[in-house]
Design a protein around this nucleic acid. Sequence first.
DNA 1: TTTCCTTACGCCTATCGTAAGCATA
DNA 2: TATGCTTACGATAGGCGTAAGGAAA
Lengths: 304, 304
Amino acid sequence: MDLFQLRCFVAVCEELHFGKAAVRLHMTQPPLSRQIQLLEDSVGARLLERTSRSVALTAAGTVLYKDALKLLKLADAAVANARLTASGDSGRVTVGYTAVSGYVLIPQLLLQAQQALPGIEIVLEEMVSSQQLRALADEALDLAFVRPLASEADLLYHRVVREPMQLALPASHALAGKRRITLADLAGQPLIMYSQKEGQYFHDKIKNLFAATGVQPRYVHHMGQTHAIVALVQAGIGVAIVPASARHLYFEQVEFRDLWRRDVVAEIYLAWRRAERNPAQRRLREFILKTLGAGSAPGTEPEG
Amino acid sequence: MDLFQLRCFVAVCEELHFGKAAVRLHMTQPPLSRQIQLLEDSVGARLLERTSRSVALTAAGTVLYKDALKLLKLADAAVANARLTASGDSGRVTVGYTAVSGYVLIPQLLLQAQQALPGIEIVLEEMVSSQQLRALADEALDLAFVRPLASEADLLYHRVVREPMQLALPASHALAGKRRITLADLAGQPLIMYSQKEGQYFHDKIKNLFAATGVQPRYVHHMGQTHAIVALVQAGIGVAIVPASARHLYFEQVEFRDLWRRDVVAEIYLAWRRAERNPAQRRLREFILKTLGAGSAPGTEPEG
DNA sequence: TTTCCTTACGCCTATCGTAAGCATA
DNA sequence: TATGCTTACGATAGGCGTAAGGAAA
């Protein structure tokens, strides 16, 4: 059995006339008759009862006609689906993001993406940067919004966010009344710190910052994620240095203050495998980079 | 696109090796490669990413593979369905029956048929014989259990039931105490009669019976169906002559008595179109005739 | 050097179209 | 006699298999 034979059969079923069906199929009657005979042979049953004056469906023909319609429809849909997938107009992309980028960046961006690329299903997975990079390598993620960290895998990066880091302190804190706060003011202060493992990027950044300036705060906790740290700040446990977007957490009893240092910035990179095969990923990535503007040049390694 | 190309594609998808897939398809690698290329051309997208060391599905290929599986499965099912239908092992048969044959004959028979021919869906339609014959001609019925009546359509018949007709009389009736009742006893008695139109067969039979014997009962009602007539008998309105199977109606206040005449019989015939095209109808008909035994020889016209 | 997918090429099969056959209204 | 499905037949195109090519490990 053959899709062409089914197309022939459907045409004859609908015309109930070999001549007209042949015209519709852009062929002559004799080969059409032959195709029907071949189909009947392969099915092993007569499908059309024909006299020289009339063509009628047998019971088997009626049953096969219904199935043939489904089959041809499915065949067309299969080709269309494959084409859409190849063009990137359809498909699924799994996107990783860190909790803090989920406050503002991800929701706005992906809302726009869903509208612009309606055929693409975007699956979100929240995890810290190091997990994301591993997941990218394992193909568990197709795109990742990560802090710049070294990775074993062969990845490409593009910076999409660059924001200052700010001091988060309890509204009741002594420094809260001070007009301008500098790093030196933090000497001896209880500072809630990112953990080495889960919050590696911020941990290293803050540690280096204090090492460079010689100021020594008092590290009182080590947490992986920004929202947990700001929650401790609100509880009055200490101050913290966090990316400015942490303001979007809306902790009422927390004040955010500038550090007046242009080099203390937090960055988010979009990362993906160099050997990417999913056209939908390319489409979504191109959309994201276009939407976020030419924030910086692409590179194989983050500046980190 | 072609089912053969899809079969080739599925084989390669599952083996991820052109050589092994070719073996599975009983062909050599080069034409298999060519089939895949043809499929890719007709889809307009690369489906398999191949190097000389590995074969991998692209995103479009993954999507098409799933659809191809469905398609091939549906294609096989379509052929199987058509074959089952052609053989009569599958299909739908619409069967007409008269109310009175529904008391005993139809339930037993069709229960057995359902078990013996599980693939055949039997749709029952209750109507009087004349309606059934018209419905047969219009192809609204495939089989009919009818009283023998002339019909315009080109039908075949086979007698399946031959039962005596009996006198139904109220238990309180004067004749109920009589040991042996003859037709002569019915002279002047109120007799509930079948109507000319709906109960034509019994109407004519009973009318002819009294005309031949010269006995003249008093016709007090004309009803189409046996159960309505026996209900009037139970109410004491009169007596009636009905087929013996009317006993199965279980009216408590009605007695059934033999007429002692072997020529007063009611017959039911199985009827079907001579030019029948539905193999399931043939299967069911053959089962019915076999099950009911060689009750009588088949004929084109009822003995009437 | 081996593996294995692709390209090249000749043979053969299969399908098309034209033409003739044949049954029915 | 006309309509319309089927059979017959020759030309052609497409697909198979064999053999050679080429890229990667």
